[in-house]
C-alpha cells in the first residue's frame, strides 16, 4: 500500500511539472500584453507606466526565470494572486470550487440515477420494445450538444413555464437548499443529458456481456428471481467501465463546464478560468490549472480504489 501511494505521489509530481510548464509556455505564446488589461481603458499609456507595471510583475525576466520563481512559490504553498482583482489564487479557488463541484456531482448523480436503471432495462429486454425505445432516446440524447439542451431548458422552464430563474446562482451556504436547487437544477440537467446517454449505453452493453456469463446461468439455475440476479450478480461486474468514465467525466467537469457556466451565469471555476484567460491573468490560470490537474490524479486514484472494491480479483496485489 505504501508503495502504491508513493508511486501515485511521484506520478502526481511529474504530472504537475508537465502541466504547469506547458500552461506557462502556452501563455507565453498568446498574443497580447497582460499590461493592457491592467490599465484602465482611459489611462494614459506612457512608457514609464508600462515599464513600471512590467517590473512590478517581473514580466521582463526571461521565461525560465519566471517559471521557476513561480514554481518556487508554488512549492512553498503560495499560488500568488490575481494581477487584476488582487484576490489570492487560493481564495479564488476556494470561492469558486464549491459551485463547480456541486454542478459536477449533481449532473453525474442525476445521470447515474437514470442511466443505470435504463441500461439494465435495455440489457434485460435486449431487442424488445423497452430496449428499442430507450436506445432510440439515448441516440437522440447523444446527438444533442449540452448547450442546445441548456437553451431548451431555459426556454421551457424559465421563459415558458417561469418555474425557475434562467440564470444566476444561489449559494448553498448562504441561501439554503431550495434556493440553491432553483438555480442549480437547470445547469446540472444540461450537463447531465449527454452523460446519461453515454452511461446508459455503457451499462447496457456491459450488462449484455455479463448476462452471457456462466455464473449468471448458475444463478438462474438456482431459481433466483431475475431482479435479484440483475442487481446482485450482474450489476457489479458490469460497472467497471462505467466507473472509469464517471471518473474521467468528473475531472473534465471540474475544469470544462465553461459553456454551461457562462450560459447560466454560474460563477464557477470554469467561468473564472475563461475570465482569467481573457485578461492574461497568468497566476490565476496557472493556479486553476494546477488544481484541476491535481484533481484528475486524485480522481484516478479514487477510481482505482473503487475498482478493487468492485472486483475482488484486483485486490490481490
Amino acid at each position: 500500500m505504501a508503495r502504491v501511494i508513493a508511486t501515485r505521489l511521484l506520478r502526481l509530481v511529474a504530472t504537475l511539472l508537465a502541466v504547469t510548464f506547458l500552461t506557462f509556455s502556452m501563455l507565453e505564446l498568446l498574443p497580447g500584453d497582460p499590461v493592457d488589461t491592467l490599465l484602465p481603458p482611459d489611462a494614459n499609456r506612457t512608457e514609464e507606466l508600462v515599464a513600471q507595471i512590467r517590473a512590478e510583475l517581473n514580466l521582463d525576466d526571461p521565461f525560465f526565470v519566471r517559471y521557476f520563481s513561480w514554481l518556487g512559490d508554488f512549492v512553498r504553498g503560495d499560488l500568488g494572486k490575481s494581477y487584476i482583482t488582487g484576490q489570492t489564487v487560493a481564495d479564488t479557488i476556494a470561492d469558486r470550487l464549491p459551485i463547480t463541484l456541486q454542478l459536477a456531482m449533481m449532473s453525474i448523480g442525476m445521470a447515474l440515477l437514470i442511466a443505470v436503471p435504463l441500461g439494465i432495462l435495455g440489457a434485460y429486454k435486449q431487442g424488445k420494445w423497452p430496449d428499442t425505445v430507450t436506445s432510440a432516446g439515448v441516440q437522440v440524447a447523444l446527438s444533442v450538444p449540452n448547450f442546445i439542451f441548456g437553451i431548451f431548458l431555459i426556454w421551457l422552464m424559465a421563459v415558458q413555464l417561469q418555474w425557475l430563474p434562467a440564470t444566476g446562482w444561489n449559494r448553498l451556504t448562504d441561501q439554503g437548499l431550495v434556493a440553491n436547487l432553483k438555480t442549480s437544477v437547470l445547469p446540472a440537467s444540461a450537463l447531465a443529458l449527454s452523460q446519461l446517454a453515454v452511461f446508459s449505453r455503457l451499462v447496457r452493453s456491459d450488462m449484455i456481456a455479463t448476462l452471457q456469463e456462466n455464473y449468471v446461468l448458475t444463478a438462474r439455475s438456482k431459481g433466483l428471481p431475475d431482479k435479484y440476479i440483475l442487481f446482485r450478480h450482474a450489476l457489479r461486474p458490469s460497472s467497471l467501465s462505467l466507473m472509469t468514465i464517471v471518473g474521467i467525466n468528473f475531472g473534465a467537469l471540474l475544469g470544462g463546464t465553461v459553456i454551461i457556466e457562462t450560459m447560466f451565469a454560474v460563477p464557477g471555476l470554469g467561468f473564472r478560468l475563461i475570465n482569467a484567460i481573457n485578461s492574461r491573468d497568468i497566476l490565476v490560470i496557472q493556479g486553476i490549472t494546477v488544481f484541476i490537474a491535481t484533481a484528475y490524479v486524485v480522481i484516478n486514484t479514487v477510481v482505482d480504489l473503487l475498482y478493487s472494491a468492485l472486483d475482488p480479483r484486483i485486490r490481490r496485489s
Binding site: 455464473y215 448458475t218 444463478a219 446482485r232 450478480h233 461486474p237 468492485l310 480479483r313
Partner: peptide
C-alpha cells in the same frame, strides 16, 4: 472456473 460469480 466460470460458473461462480467472481465478485460475490
Amino acid at each position: 472456473m466460470t460458473s461462480l460469480n467472481p465478485v460475490v
